[in-house]
Design a protein around this nucleic acid. Structure first.
Lengths: 191, 191
DNA sequence: CCCGTAGTGAACATCATGTTCGATTTATAC
DNA sequence: GTATAAATCGAACATGATGTTCACTACGGG
């Protein structure tokens, strides 16, 4: 049921280019990566690159989209929010599995795109869950979008710290931190 | 008592270049700004730029340092932390005054440098204040650096949202949000 | 097996970067 | 004020990345 019947070759090319970019992003900053670097690493011709993507940024964006898509699928496949706001434990676990892939995106330019995209996704979930959580007794002196951003930004902060600390902690421990930091503030808003 | 007696001309040049960069950053993304853009805007010769800075990045970093320095001075001059963790209200007020300048740095490449630098500064204050706050009864299942990052990242998140919302709220309201979101989580860690 | 689509690589124009240097302006010290 | 040292100017240049084009080749789907 795919409307886009992809040639085996194009799929392969995109895969190679994407992988090459991710690998390079683990070695140096996105802005220091040249298109030629990607070409060499992927062993793909120059003109082929431009047949698929307009930009370095375009390639990056496509990678992030597929990442978000993965996270989306992973979390909606499973049951759902354990604590009612965000399936954080599931997410921490999935991130651990996809360590290398994720690590390329928590800092630098990728982080910005990821942040915006991720916060957007999370916001919807949170805003709904928060409202249906305990009736309508919510303290609106803190606007809902702020609450959503609060949850998302704390989660991303924890991811960054986790990576920088060489992932010495377990997903369960990370989730515990997340709960302890975020939930009290949230519950304080609900009467 | 300045060991660096600066020539009037160099000061002027640096000022012009810095101002030009900030202005441009309010118009477009840092990465899309070309050195020639800065030169034209500042009306400064090409070779002069390279006599002062090695890079676009170098110039950016110097701007951020001076920004941090400003914040530092501003907050240490005043009394000090109103809530014991961060002089947040003072900071929100100062940010409001320096709106244009700050706005150039909360997103994009500037944000990354600002985040690292800012979180570093904040961390020290917080780690000390938290320990001396109520003796030593602290829940260390959430490491202190994480707590520090939690406070800093929430603060920066609020700044971003504030700007994106066209600064419709007062510094007092922003501080209220900050307190309501952050403090419960912090207090939960202290027995 | 054949056709069409995708990938190749070399050549090219363009643009930003960073360097150099002699000429010129300007701050500061005397 | 004038001399001296330092800063700015601006044009020219080498370099390297970007993005486009095109004739040729290779491969996948039917």
């Amino acid at each position: 049921m795919k409307n886009a019947k992809e040639d085996r070759r194009t799929k392969r090319t995109r895969q190679l280019l994407g992988d090459a970019l991710v690998e390079l992003m683990l070695e140096k900053r996105f802005d220091d990566i040249t298109i030629q670097d990607i070409l060499d690493r992927a062993d793909i011709g120059r003109s082929t690159f431009y047949a698929h993507y307009t930009d370095k940024e375009h390639l990056l964006m496509s990678q992030i989209e597929s990442l978000i898509h993965q996270l989306d699928e992973y979390t909606t496949k499973k049951g759902y929010p354990h604590n009612g706001l965000l399936p954080s434990l599931e997410l921490f676990r999935h991130v651990q599995q996809q360590r290398r892939l994720m690590q390329a995106f928590v800092w630098g330019r990728g982080a910005e795109m990821l942040t915006r995209n991720f916060q957007g996704q999370v916001s919807k979930v949170i805003e709904q869950n928060l409202l249906s959580l305990t009736g309508d007794q919510v303290d609106f002196s803190v606007p809902l979008p702020v609450v959503a951003n609060f949850v998302a930004s704390t989660f991303l902060m924890l991811l960054r710290w986790w990576f920088d600390d060489d992932m010495r902690h377990t997903p369960e421990q990370m989730d515990e931190m997340f709960q302890k930091l975020v939930m009290p503030g949230i519950h304080g808003l609900v009467v």
